[in-house]
Simulated assay, not measured.
Amino acid sequence: MDDDNVLLNRLHDMFSAHDAPPATVIGLAQGLYGLRHLDAELAALTSDSAVDAPEVAVRRSGTDVRLLTFESAELAIEIEVSGTGRIRRVVGQLVPGGPATLEARQPSAPQPRHAEADDRGRFEFESLAPEPLSLTWRRPGSRPVTTEWTGLA
């Protein structure tokens, strides 16, 4: 092991023992690292049923459902988040519709998960953790579009 790695390991051990950052900070830093697509357009959160109308609960078979809309200059993505406990399900649709490849990133996942949108732009991710999520979708001939990080808790 070279001198730089020895020094870095010692610094890591020292700061981990005496001044460790909160787990949420580590998770957000890992999430930001996952946003390495510098050419991707950012889709901002424009509607969240948990904020816009918290008194109106959307319910399906005993489970609260959260509706989110993200918009960029040319595309929008509408998702429905459902589930309780340690599992979340995301069902969504791209507007305008059409086939696309989607990628879901979460801080605790070592690799992004992938899904394909059908001809109408519909897609689904099962068994997501109740933690921050960022989606990236790609269509042939277009720049990738990435959502801002949004908590699923």
Rank of each mutant, 00 (worst) to 15 (best):
V56P: 01
A73P: 10
T69L: 14
A44T: 09
H12P: 00
T150G: 09
S127C: 10
W137R: 00
V145G: 01
T150P: 06
W149S: 04
V6L: 10
G83E: 04
A53T: 12
D48T: 02
P132E: 02
S82P: 00
G97P: 06
L128Q: 02
D4M: 07
R139F: 11
A76S: 15
Q93C: 13
Q106L: 06
P22Y: 06
V56R: 11
L45M: 11
P107Q: 03
G85E: 02
Q111K: 12
R86E: 14
P96A: 12
T101Q: 14
E124F: 11
D39Y: 09
A29F: 04
V90E: 02
E148G: 15
T147V: 11
L45N: 01
L45I: 07
A109F: 10
R88C: 03
I87M: 11
Q106E: 04
E78K: 11
A109E: 10
S49V: 00
I77H: 01
P22H: 08
R10T: 12
V145Q: 00
R105N: 06
S49I: 02
L133H: 01
R113Q: 12
P96W: 09
G83V: 04
L75E: 07
L8G: 07
R113Y: 12
R60N: 05
D118R: 05
A23R: 14
R89L: 08
P107G: 05
F123A: 00
Q93A: 13
A29T: 10
L135K: 03
R36M: 05
D64Q: 13
A43L: 08
N5W: 10
T147D: 08
L152M: 09
E124Q: 14
F125R: 01
H18W: 15
V25T: 14
F70P: 00
A43K: 03
P99H: 13
A117V: 00
L35G: 07
A50H: 05
T101E: 11
T24G: 03
R122E: 12
P132K: 01
E41L: 05
R120Q: 11
F70M: 04
D64N: 14
T147N: 06
L102Q: 00
Q106M: 10
E80A: 07
S47H: 05
H12E: 06
D48R: 00
T101R: 09
L11Q: 02
P21G: 07
T101P: 01
E78H: 05
H18C: 09
L67T: 04
A115T: 06
G92M: 03
L7I: 14
G97V: 09
L133V: 06
F15I: 07
E78N: 09
E131M: 13
L135E: 02
L94S: 04
L128R: 02
R60T: 11
E124L: 14
E148V: 15
L32N: 05
D64H: 07
